[in-house]
Each structure stands twice: as C-alpha cells, then as structure tokens.
Design a protein around this nucleic acid. Structure first.
Lengths: 125, 125
DNA sequence: TATGCATATTCATATATTGGCATATGCCGT
DNA sequence: ACGGCATATGCCAATATATGAATATGCATA
C-alpha cells in the first residue's frame, strides 16, 4: 500500500467515513449503506475503488460481503484517522457514524443474525 | 482550508515534494523547477492547483513569484509532512530535495541575488 | 428449479485532473 | 519602445473519477 494510494483514498468524505467505520471492525455493505445514508451501488463502487487502491478487502459470507481494512496498522492511515478523530470529528461525522454503527449492530443481531455472525467471524469487537 | 482539499493536495508525489520544500521556507518557481527536475509549465500548473485548494499562496517580487504555505501550522498538514519525513523519507525524496535546496540557495545568492533577497523578504531561514 | 435478498457490473454521461505545446503577461535593464 | 527573463494562461487530447439507470451475479431457502 503506497503513500499516494492512501491519500487518494482519504480525499473523499464518504471514503473517510468508511475507513473510520472499518477501523472499528469489519462491516458488510448493507451496514455501510445504512450508516452513510447512501445507496448500494454508490457504496459498492467506493469499495471497489478502495480495494483497487489496496486499502480494503472483502470476503464473502453467505450472501454478505464483509469488508475490512487491508492493513489497519498502516502508520499513515492510523495517524490520519487518529488526527481526524481528534481534531475534525464534526466535519467528518465520525462520532455520529460510530454511534449509529453500535445501534445498528444490535438491530442486525436480532433481524439478520447470519449477517451479524459473519461480521463476528471476521473479527468484530 | 478543508480536510478534503488537504488530501487532494497530498495525493501526488510532486505536490508532496513541493509542500515539503515550502515547509522549510518560501521558494520561487525557478527553484522548484530545478529541484524537482521538472519544467516551468508543469510546476506552475501544480502551484495553481494547490492555490485553488487553498494550500499555497504566491507573492510577486520583481520578476519572481515567491510561493509559501498558506497555513504551515495546519495540524493535518503538519502531521502528514512529519509522518512522511519520519517514515517514508526515501519514497518521497524529501531529504534529497532539502539537500538540493540548500545547495541551490547558495548558488542563487551568487548568481541572482535579487531572487535570493526576495525569498528572504518572504521569511527564508 | 424458482424466488428473494445482498452485492457487483455494465453502459452512458458528466466532471476533474494531467500533459504538451504554443503563446501571453509582467517586470527589468537598456 | 525593445529584448530578455520568469511566470502564467489557453487550447486540445488523454486519462481518471463520479453518477444514474438498468441489469447481472452469487447465495440461500422453499
């Protein structure tokens, strides 16, 4: 994963939000769609782009694709997410997204346990 | 200066090198052309792009345009340049550029004192 | 095998960014 | 006003990225 690819991934708000979410554990596309209040095709395309940049990878569990960071420990990525979290939280709606994520994962556990399990197989906290 | 603009500026090696150089003080276009081993039009266009993003600003001194960082203390920018310097110095040829910069500024003082003075008026160290 | 759900892909179009080449502008010294 | 130097701009083609609508794929379950 090269420097430039990292920055290319960082220079879009939606991608920033995805990175922030994935830093706290893997997610399936439908979670992302709901949290980002976007639509499936857009998110799918962002994920493809991010995958081409080498930033995320996806694994299929049943009908769900679970995405996670390729290298959550990449110094440049970590530093930036940390910095954004510390200094620009509102601009990026990082905190709001994480709150939504928590609420959502409760709901998912009840409504689609399969999806919840798949994510946990991939290392959810 | 917004987050996204900062990252847009960071996602090109040539722009990274320019930011690194400007962080150590203002420079004129001809310096940049020489250090980056590029040509005048390319550098001029990069500078315009960076100016539109709000990252640099230029001031004219006689026939020279002296460029400097708009906000050298911007946390996101500082953090990133620091991180790149610490962890990815070779990838970006930051150190080499700075060495070249030093050598160059000696030569400029001798050959085109006007340009050297202009830069110093703008706050060179 | 037919159906439904989650996700990906294709196509067409719009916009952004990059690069090369030629030319224009601004300022200086004569 | 003229020539030279430093810098910027305009134009055009190439490539990259983004967006919307329609459609295709993969998997599960009945």
């Amino acid at each position: 994963m090269e420097i430039i690819q990292v920055y290319k991934c960082l220079c879009d708000v939606q991608r920033l939000r995805i990175l922030n979410l994935l830093q706290h554990g893997p997610l399936c596309v439908c979670h992302l769609v709901e949290i980002l209040e976007s639509d499936q095709v857009k998110i799918s395309k962002q994920l493809r782009y991010m995958k081409e940049l080498g930033m995320v990878e996806g694994e299929r569990f049943a009908q769900w694709m679970i995405y996670s960071l390729t290298d959550a420990k990449h110094p440049l990525l970590r530093e930036n997410l940390k910095c954004l979290q510390d200094c620009y939280a509102e601009d990026t709606s990082f905190a709001k997204d994480l709150r939504q994520r928590a609420a959502l994962s409760e709901r998912i556990k009840a409504e689609t346990p399969g999806c919840a399990e798949a994510i946990c197989d991939q290392g959810c906290q």
